[in-house]
Nucleic acid binder design. Structure first.
Lengths: 211, 211, 211, 211
DNA sequence: CATGAATGAGTTTTCATTCAT
DNA sequence: CATGAATGAAAACTCATTCAT
């Protein structure tokens, strides 16, 4: 009770599991998995090392939980940002907007990108998880493109899968540039240009009039 | 004779410094800086741990030497691929081609991307080095765009800096996707589409009126 | 249970921090700082290397803690041995007695002398600490001399600072000789002679004719 | 020949063995045996590590050679400073003078004291060497005292061995204080006082009343 | 649940020593 | 003699994990 842990009435018990997740996500996003020690996470969460093992089997478990949390949350956000039946052009813009939001306001996107790169050859299981996530995301973008093609809004001689790869890569790459050099790379403008470019490219050939 | 690396006469001294660099670059590219132990590098290079310290002050020194080597080499390759006075369209295609080459045949590009992401918050000095490199690269791409604009080959209402950010991000992102999922992401096709898209976007307006 | 130091219930927690300090002091006194490995200290204390880092930041921290502990303890002993208002002659004898005690029964004096010599050019910060300690000690001795002079017990044409330097040096030197060659150098007799000599020298001139 | 090693005509080949000894003595005096690396000595001597092994079997051999060199040289100096048949009072003053000289002009005395303390429990063989040296030195001082006693210049109720221990300890201790705090401890004055004190003590009792 | 001391394996680094040239 | 690359053992330190309380 003297050890600072007592909460006042109504102070929402702040389950330390949640705090640990928050701290872990932040640390992993900035320092990577290998660069983050359990001790660091615990300290940031305001508990001791031992407490981590009350909630998670080991460091990897914490990692997977964090990834599941962030990936799920992000995908949910994107789906919410793109209601079914929406204008496909608006849909693509909204996806970019969601990415922008999560890349600047939260560090969810950076968390994903950082761990994805790190996991490539060091954590096959995690890497597989990310692979699935990217496939879902590309599939999602490709489906938007496909709908646009069916609606006659997009030209038909473009493979939706390749186009979605290019778009997704463009978004990720722009983010990395921005994390690296926020003073020079204005993420908003780069993403806007990226979407404009994509839409122009997808516009049916005639006298292409992108939004 | 059993005592390790002693070479017999005429056995081509195979300067172990070079071998250490090669091993280090490969390990760092795949496992990251923190994920690579000195011991691993030494073993891969066929020497003992101690030998590493014969050639490099410490692990970080080895890292910086490796980065300097790879970045320098890559930039040299790109400059060679784009002779001065070349057609700007061809120039952009050649840049993409060089990236494709170094992303698939060697692992130089992956080395750079992996370390760039890892260094963000863990190694400010290295991160600054990468920041400079990206600025040079963006500046180089922007100069090509600018020349195209002066030649009337590219439209003039596009800011070269933003366009080069989008292009560079697109390349890096496509590479990451490819490293993640080589079976699904055909880097060549994605890069081709990326360049096509960029060139279409840069094409002088005939009737195209993008927002 | 086999996993080492886990104590059974009631087994008197024997705080290992204390044991580590004891082991460290003993090792440093005999082997010097550089000659003592963390592993050695841990083994002597009956714990593993890792435990050391549980209680001390690093080897140097352990060193400074040990020095602080011993120096403080020794100064405390000396002050207790020389109550305020005591006969100055008795005071000097008691100081020598305290040194004798800590040089033979414990190894506190040897600890201080060993580290003081080693630190000279290898650890400026520690050396400064010892410098302060010696200044305090000399100041303390000088104050006794000064009081004796005021009381008319000691002659007045002697500088207390120089006299205290000679006395302190005499004590330290005698100890070193004794550590070196305990069979030949009888520390008690040398210290006694030293004090006799000092007191004779400090005695008010009656007919004393020094060369 | 390009490697800087070529000497001009007449430049006295400066046998590197000598330079290595000089460098070793200096390093050992300041940093101790364990605190000095072979590489450091070699660098200070202007050669490479390997060269050390051309002249000395190993680090310990270099140590013993250095000790032999310094101890021999110092004893020789002292003997020269005290010609046989000299006035015993002058003899003691000259010994102190020789110590002062070698403690301030060269670092021979510090070399001896540093290694003597370090060797105590870490190098029994070296420690034995120093023990012999101290015995010789004490014997030498004791013989002077004894001669003085026979000449009636010194009182006879003092044991020469104990007196010489006190004197030798006083000299060593004063030196250590001076190495520690040269700005506060004026070695010359402390040694002078020490000799005065000793001589006063040794003066035949006329009215001298020690406590 | 939570703490914090402790373990033990693994990491970076140092350094005396060897040896082909 | 001298060099300098290389070895190998030992050192300091880190950190995920365990466990008694």
């Amino acid at each position: 009770m003297s050890a600072g842990g007592r909460r006042r009435r109504g102070e929402r018990a702040e389950p330390s599991r949640k705090q640990l997740m928050v701290a872990a996500i932040d640390c992993f996003a900035r320092l990577g998995y290998q660069g983050t020690s359990i001790d660091r996470i615990a300290r940031d969460a305001g508990v001791t090392k031992g407490a981590v093992y009350c909630h998670f089997r080991d460091k990897e478990d914490l990692l997977f939980e964090a990834v599941k949390d962030r990936v799920g949350s992000f995908e949910h956000q994107v789906l919410r940002a793109v209601p079914a039946g929406q204008d496909v052009v608006l849909a693509l813009r909204n996806v970019a907007e969601a990415c922008f939001f999560h890349a600047t306001v939260s560090n969810h996107r950076r968390f994903i990108i950082t761990l994805m790169v790190e996991a490539l050859d060091t954590n096959p299981r995690l890497s597989a998880e990310f692979r699935q996530m990217l496939r879902r995301f590309r599939g999602f973008l490709a489906s938007i493109v496909r709908i646009g093609q069916e609606q006659g809004v997009f030209r038909r001689d473009v493979e939706p899968e390749v186009a979605s790869s290019a778009l997704m890569g463009g978004i990720m790459g722009a983010e990395i540039e921005h994390y690296q050099d926020p003073q020079v790379v204005d993420l908003r403008r780069v993403l806007d240009l990226l979407i404009d470019q994509t839409l122009a490219w997808l516009a049916p050939a005639r006298a292409s009039t992108a939004a």
